[in-house]
Amino acid sequence: MEFVRPDSIEATVAALQADGAACLAGGATLVAMMNADLVAPHRLVSLRDVAALREAARQPDGTVVVGAMRRHRETAEETDLRDGQLVLSEAAAQIANPPVRNMGTIGGSCAFADPAADYPPALLAADARFSLIGAEGRRTVPAGDFFLDWYETALEPGELIESVVLPPAPARTVGSYTKLARVAGDFAIASVALVLGMDGRACIHLAVAVGACGPAPVRRRDVEADLIGGGLGDTEIRRLTDALAEAFDPVDDVRASADYRRRVAPRMVRQALVEAQQRISETP
């Protein structure tokens, strides 16, 4: 095993073009897996000194670019995120615990793609895109096409996540992330990320993604599209939760049974939507 610490994105990409090369971001997952003898990369490419990956910036149109090396704590406190984009900071604040939030990064977490992790549903609900860079150059992959299967992403060998790009959230949308876990900071039994906009009683923006209920976060854009323009009462919410539940493929594990997840996640979606509507109606 060799260890390299490049200081530019170009040098990082070059260092990754070797068999068995792996990015070392915050280490929160990779080093834990190395300690457990589950992985042994031939070359560790530390991203520590690549300054460009550590930044987050808000563009004039409200787009927010979050560098892959932004730590969970930084994202939890990110003042550049506004309105519906706050779904991401709410998710970041619920990851693990303070020491792990000081280490773990958004790029590292997404590249590992744990099905019960907090960022995947939040990014899917925020309509985020991944900016990936490799030997062939840059490409952009929407969150919905990035998380592919259990622990599998659209990342190709030799490619790294450069940043996560959140489009501007429509004004007056709210973002929320709710997670059910055995104890605070554990991986989710199930989680719900949503971005909601209401104009009076009419729903004008709706994005709901459910985490920990399948290999990738689950979202039903088809049903969301049908619900735009109408009210969001029990019947409409029921349509969405039924459609989401059809797409669930949860695991049985130490946190909860698959059956429990199927039952609890729709109720969490309902509750989150009711609470978000309440928040909107209380906002002057």
């Binding site: 259990w150 622990y151 695991v251």
Partner: peptide
């Protein structure tokens, strides 16, 4: 052994 550390939930799906 080592692979069992990863948990059976996802292993079963695999």
């Amino acid at each position: 052994g080592r692979l069992a550390k990863f948990g059976f939930g996802v292993m079963k799906k695999k």
